[in-house]
């Protein structure tokens, strides 16, 4: 019910709606990939085909094929699955860790706060990508390790936001009422404080989701992403980079796909911010 109401509010901002449409488009692509994609993304057919070339075996390569002869359109459609599984997963993990740390630091204060804040200061003093490269180099490149690296690098930023919000909310009357009732610390943090801090967090989550998509793309581009055979947008750009001068279509279409998805998340965040500023 509440979700329906906020969706109705979102409809008033065309920026937010544009974001919803782009994101929904890619989600549909990801869910129905086996039915939408014209070819198997791993099948080796005709190498170096330009966009629009017809295949002897039937069907057309609408976006051409890569250097191994795999259909680019199918790989993009299947690649949306990879991105839309790992990006939200990494964001959720980062948020779980960040929210826990932030709530404890902001609510308990004292040495909890000191230690958690120092840890986050240390992590935040690294340039993000340098941190990702170091973490991935240490634990190896795989889907789960990407999630771990992103959680490790972005939880401190989330922790700071949550800590700031908690510092503001912990002096409210309803928190004092809960303390007087004798509720446990965790009940107060999770049931009283967290739901009241959700507004800024939802907007930030949307923006961060966009950043995580960028990160997964960049890691793929640097060769630190998912292992090769799986279709992955960043990896597709990486594989075709050396051929980009002669066959730009191999790199351009995955780039358009990833940019549009990030644009969708950013527009969605803008729309949500507009709404949250209004009331």
């Amino acid at each position: 019910m509440r979700a329906l109401k906020s969706f109705a509010l979102l409809r008033e901002s065309w920026v937010g709606m544009a974001g919803v449409f782009i994101v929904a488009f890619w989600i549909v692509m990801a869910i129905f990939a086996p039915w939408i994609a014209p070819f198997d993304p791993l099948e080796l057919m005709q190498p170096f085909a330009k966009p629009g070339v017809e295949w002897k075996g039937g069907g057309t390569f609408w976006l051409g094929t890569d250097s191994l002869g795999r259909d680019i359109l199918s790989r993009i459609i299947w690649g949306s699955r990879t991105v839309l599984i790992y990006a939200p997963l990494a964001t959720i993990c980062a948020y779980t860790v960040g929210i826990m740390m932030g709530l404890v630091a902001g609510y308990r204060l004292g040495w909890w706060d000191t230690i958690l804040s120092r840890i986050s200061d240390i992590v935040l003093s690294f340039p993000v990508l340098v941190l990702y490269v170091i973490v991935i180099a240490t634990i190896g490149a795989s889907g789960i390790n990407i999630v771990i690296a992103i959680t490790f690098a972005s939880a401190p930023g989330i922790m700071r936001i949550v800590r700031g919000l908690t510092l503001d909310l912990r002096n409210r009357d309803y928190v004092a009422a809960a303390q007087t009732r004798g509720e446990s610390d965790w009940f107060i943090m999770l049931v009283e404080i967290l739901p009241n801090a959700r507004g800024p967090l939802i907007v930030d989550a949307c923006l961060r989701l966009g950043y995580v998509v960028i990160t997964i793309g960049i890691l793929g581009f640097l060769g630190l992403g998912l292992p090769p055979p799986d279709p992955d947008w960043g990896g597709m750009v990486n594989e075709s980079r050396s051929l980009a001068m002669a066959f730009p279509h191999m790199a351009v279409f995955p780039c358009i796909a990833i940019s549009s998805l990030i644009l969708g998340f950013n527009l969605l965040a803008d729309g949500l911010r507009e709404i949250s500023l209004r009331d």
């Binding site: 966009g210 793309g217 960049i218 750009v237 730009p248 780039c255 358009i256 940019s259 644009l263 950013n266």
Partner: peptide
């Protein structure tokens, strides 16, 4: 800001 650096490099 929505276009990652590697994508704009390719473009």
């Amino acid at each position: 800001t929505s276009i990652p650096e590697f994508a704009s490099a390719v473009f």
